[in-house]
Design a protein around this nucleic acid. Sequence first.
DNA 1: CGTTGCATGTAAGGTGTTACATGATTAC
DNA 2: GTAATCATGTAACACCTTACATGCAACG
Lengths: 192, 192
Amino acid sequence: MKDERHLPTTAYAVLGLLSFGRELSGYDLKKWADNSLRYFFWSPAISNIYGELKRLEQLGYVVARAVAQDDLRNKRVFRITDDGRAALLAWIDEASVEPPVLKDHVLLRVWLGHVTSRERLLALVDDEEASARRVAEDVRRSLELSREDPAFAFPAAVEEWCLRYQQSRIEAFAELRRTLAALPDVNPGRSP
Amino acid sequence: MKDERHLPTTAYAVLGLLSFGRELSGYDLKKWADNSLRYFFWSPAISNIYGELKRLEQLGYVVARAVAQDDLRNKRVFRITDDGRAALLAWIDEASVEPPVLKDHVLLRVWLGHVTSRERLLALVDDEEASARRVAEDVRRSLELSREDPAFAFPAAVEEWCLRYQQSRIEAFAELRRTLAALPDVNPGRSP
DNA sequence: CGTTGCATGTAAGGTGTTACATGATTAC
DNA sequence: GTAATCATGTAACACCTTACATGCAACG
């Protein structure tokens, strides 16, 4: 129980997943992050999760319990402690909130549109729009599950936000496509 | 002119800024990134830019020219080479495109809403909405400048996307606020 | 006379990724 | 039988940030 104070956000994300009260393994946490945090924040690598769990355990923020599957397999499930809950609350209530980050690799390429062909740009934008549609579908499914359990009212509220967000992405990319199609092709046939 | 092949995205971002043909210093690049890339991608730290410029110079993708300001100050401006332009084109046309990332620290806290008070959540959401309004204003100003020069048609198209994006954020946060206000306060008065 | 802007760069350190090592179970 | 899923963890490495070092010019 050291007084560390500067944990990486990943640590709080893991602690947050455990704050719903369930006992979860590192593997469970990764799967859940992939189906929730990923849509509005970020899903850490599995090795990163194991690393943070180790640190949280040393700090006394989580406790592990060995689950005997059979002889050789060692599975451990983690539970948040009162100290962990207090640390999470302090982070939510007191830590300064970093600005949101959007990192879109397609937009970076479009921004550099003068370097390549219109054909390539349109293909990139089309792919991104299609991918946004798929993500929207995934979020919709998550949202339906969250709505079933009142314990997930806050995740559901965020998933509604995510759904809206993906829908506005779809529209924005459709509009961008029209804009690009109207622009002259600076480097025709440059792409493969 | 080694055959490196796996440059970090930051290197291509810097190369991209130089692909508009102007001779720019590291300092110039940082300022420009802050006013453009930041809104849809990311603005690297100034030290990072100098590091990438060094690498790009070794690869022969950019060339430097010393600008004698006065005796002691040493300023260098960089220009993209044909090799650099080819490398940038290859990256845009051939490299696989990573999925877009949204990292929103307010949404992470709202997702964990059961841990804190409604008061705190509403304050966070209000701040984020206000900040989105400010960013939208900044983007609007950039867009007006880009529209003046036909060489910036692609940046302008992306800035239009960014403006739309910020507007949809504003609406989505307003809607999230209404949802949260309707939810029961799980931990009243827990926040300072 | 202090802060901001201009201007460049190095060094140390944190954060996170991929690759590796290991092995059982289940589904096709 | 081979791929995917379950399951844990370490090690090496990439990437990027902050802090530091240095100094002039202009504004208030």
